[in-house]
């Protein structure tokens, strides 16, 4: 599944200082959908190069990290249960640094 992932507010520093990542995620054995929960663990394994604790806490994002799925706060779409579709845009912004 093709997705565009964007990291901001300092999170880009955890993944090679690159803000925008166009990624292609292979769905696991026969599954035809991908949830945010799946995406987070994929990101943690494949994109985050250092200090993963700045990005995640437990199985979700660290409190203070804003998540937008297609410009919409993921709180409105079910957070970890949000199901993603082809060409979705997911943005992660840390609000913890720099007023």
């Amino acid at each position: 599944m093709q997705l565009t992932l964007e990291f901001g507010g300092g999170l880009e520093l955890l993944c090679d200082s690159k803000k925008i990542h166009d990624v292609n995620i292979e769905l696991q054995n026969g599954e035809d959908k991908l949830t945010m929960k799946d995406l987070l663990s994929w990101v943690r394994t494949n994109l985050i190069k250092e200090r993963p604790e700045m990005f995640m806490k437990g199985d979700t994002v660290r409190p203070g990290v804003l998540v937008l799925v297609n410009d919409c706060d993921w709180e409105l779409s079910g957070q970890l249960d949000t199901s993603l579709e082809e060409k979705d845009v997911v943005v992660f912004i840390s609000t913890l640094h720099g007023g």
Partner: peptide, 25 residues
């Protein structure tokens, strides 16, 4: 196609204007 995608997904509607898709809680 974004509008279409949102319709398909049934995004929630703004509780103030009751028109646009809600973006924040």
């Amino acid at each position: 196609g974004e509008g279409e995608r949102e319709r398909k997904r049934g995004g929630r509607v703004c509780c103030v204007c009751n028109e646009a898709r809600a973006s924040v809680k």
